[in-house]
């Protein structure tokens, strides 16, 4: 929270490196552009973008760690989980 590009992505990358394949990471942010950047990051890295939930103050985004590269279009069309 309170961080702006590119810090949330750097932190996400660092955190996901220490996780096991198949585990899910919740990213909490108040920067709306993360809704564009995180799916893009997932498309590049092959991790699976699961979508997001939003309340008045925060956005909660979910990423499943994948060990293998997925197709470039993966994650592109995901929408809000609500």
């Amino acid at each position: 929270m309170g961080f702006f590009c590119p810090i949330p992505i750097i932190k996400t990358n660092a955190r996901i490196r220490g996780m096991q394949e198949g585990e899910t990471l919740e990213v909490i942010s108040d920067d709306r552009v993360i809704l564009v950047d995180l799916p893009n990051w997932c498309r590049g890295t092959g991790h699976e973008y699961l979508g997001y939930l939003e309340d008045e103050r925060e956005i909660h985004l979910f990423v499943k760690k994948r060990g293998r590269k997925a197709s470039p279009s993966q994650g592109k069309e995901r929408e809000s989980l609500k």
Binding site: V33, V36, N40, W41, G44, K69, S71, P72
Partner: peptide, 14 residues
């Protein structure tokens, strides 16, 4: 305002 490097990575699949 998106990060263009991440967008390029996504489009390239890298």
């Amino acid at each position: 305002l998106r990060n263009e490097a991440l967008r390029a990575g996504a489009d390239l699949g890298i």
